[in-house]
Design a protein around this nucleic acid. Structure first.
Lengths: 154, 154
DNA sequence: CGCGTAATTGATACTTACTATCGATAAGTG
DNA sequence: CACTTATCGATAGTAAGTATCAATTACGCG
């Protein structure tokens, strides 16, 4: 029900080279010794087809022909291999989305649920110094930025 | 089990004016029309006695004489009234701790689990600008910083 | 190309964390 | 003190994810 107010803006691509994305991820998994199976491809395809951050349950609903356990296992595998990253919504709901790069942060639209990657944001050094001032040796951080995307701005 | 590797450092105060903290919170709740009850005080007292971020289950275990539902309700009330804030650990486990100020971030020690508030950290403007560059109008953010505290540093 | 092994699947049972229900109890007002 | 209503606690229920295990399937090998 938290997702009921996610509106579609029409900006998501219908399936932007989805097959290629699936092939790419499957081959990356193959390099690590994971098999190329049909259910796995379906899970990856469904994840790639999502226009915005999704939950495991949404994938299950989108894939009625794939067992729940398989969807959860597939998703976990994708997270473990960094193909999918976690996104924390403002109400602390945990969702997922395909990773597009290494370390980055997310810009999340509170109105339509869209997510954008926040690149070139150099808070790292600032944080390291502030942490050092408190006697901490920083090893990492987690940051989400909430607001309204260009389409949903006032 | 994720908490098994939290070691006590001996740095936490035994019960730093715990009674006063409880009285203070209870009176704040009273202003909002919430009653002063013994179970509620026990929950607040237990929360205040925690040296580091805690889970609802830990409070339940610490208060065997208080019903589970009451512990959860009390904790939820404290979160709603901003007496307690949520802390997200590196492994995405959600914990709680008393709020000490308004908007701030947490420094979390990966070794002993200690938490410190990160004050005077001005990432706000930087983030606002980076978000604007992506067409976003920022309204808020969530940030946790992970590392090692002074006692646990190499 | 067919075999055999081991990864993978899916149905289901289970777990964990939390919420809803509801009769009983107690806080606080007049 | 009495009365109203918030609050309590025991328990049942729910949601999200994990464990189990027999059946299936990928894929290296000959």
């Amino acid at each position: 029900m938290a997702t009921d107010n996610l509106k579609h803006t029409g900006h998501e691509h219908p399936l932007p080279r989805s097959a290629a994305v699936v092939d790419d991820i499957v081959s990356q998994l193959a390099h690590r010794g994971y098999r190329d199976t049909e259910p796995r491809r379906l899970v990856i395809g469904a994840a790639a087809a999502q226009a915005r951050p999704f939950t495991a349950e949404e994938l299950c609903a989108a894939l009625p022909c794939v067992g729940r356990a398989t969807v959860y296992r597939g998703l976990r595998l994708l997270v473990e291999t960094d193909q999918v990253c976690r996104v924390l919504l403002e109400d602390k709901e945990l969702r997922y989305q395909l990773s597009h790069q290494g370390h980055h942060h997310h810009l999340l639209c509170a109105v339509c649920g869209a997510s954008a990657d926040l690149a070139n944001c150099d808070v790292e050094e600032t944080l390291r110094e502030a942490a050092a001032a408190a006697g901490f040796q920083m090893s990492g951080h987690w940051l989400e930025v909430y607001g309204r995307c260009a389409d949903c701005a006032d």
